[in-house]
Design a protein around this nucleic acid. Structure first.
Length: 213
DNA sequence: CAGTCGATTCACT
DNA sequence: GTGAATCGACTGA
């Protein structure tokens, strides 16, 4: 028996917990992106935890800056960053105000508004690839820097919200090293995904870039 | 103020 | 499997 996904929004208290607790608990939840053209909904299947200032892999490791400011703010807000000169990735901020942990949303299954996501993801060869990877996920949901700092737990209209959905039972959660994280940050097995889900992205070790002329 | 490189993706071989 | 694309944030001088 498959339970009907719970459409109740997750309250701020959900995110006001240790990030290693929140990250696996986000699997199976529904992220709703409200665009001018309509809603796009995604069932989360893969996430990564970044443990604030103590974590060499985190953007917050070297302290608060203009870019990562939102990570240090209250939980339940969205941290969006721009990388590789062309992509965006999105996180949900966790833990109390003043700390800087966050969960990177790495992959998911589009469960509503697929026709809108396809328009943004023209290179996707099938619907499983629409949000397979963090930059693909952000692209499919039309998430970019202007949404940095959005409150996903606010009352009323918000561009992003997280619904309770159908949480994944612990026996279906897998974890392993984080993808593409350089240096000492790669060692922690803080990537979490849904076992055998076809929308989960493949693991890749960090690849240092070659020297330019 | 110039140099380096990234929580990646895509086109090609 | 390999390399290019592309730019802004961060670093260190």
């Amino acid at each position: 028996m498959i339970a009907t996904p719970d459409r109740t929004p997750l309250p701020r208290e959900f995110f006001d917990r240790p990030v290693l607790e929140v990250a696996p608990d986000l699997l199976g939840r529904i992220l709703v992106r409200t665009t001018p053209d309509g809603p796009i909904a995604l069932r989360l299947t893969e996430v990564e935890a970044y443990d604030g200032e103590n974590d060499p892999g985190s953007h917050a490791y070297r302290g608060r800056t203009a870019r990562n400011d939102v990570m240090f703010g209250p939980p339940g807000h969205v941290y969006v960053y721009f990388t590789y000169g062309m992509w965006h990735c999105m996180n949900l901020v966790c833990g109390p105000d003043g700390t800087a942990s966050a969960v990177l949303l790495r992959a998911g299954e589009i469960v509503e508004g697929a026709e809108l996501a396809r328009k943004r993801r023209l290179s996707a060869r099938n619907d499983k690839e629409l949000a397979k990877g963090p930059a693909r996920l952000a692209t499919a949901l039309e998430v970019a820097r202007p949404l940095d700092g959005s409150d996903a737990c606010a009352l009323g209209d918000t561009p992003l919200r997280v619904l309770a959905g159908t949480p994944i039972t612990s026996d279906q959660v897998r974890n392993g090293p984080r993808t593409g994280v350089s240096g000492d940050g790669g060692v922690h097995p803080w990537r979490f995904w849904v076992a055998n889900d076809p929308t989960v992205s493949p693991y890749r070790a960090h690849t240092p870039r070659r020297r330019s002329s």
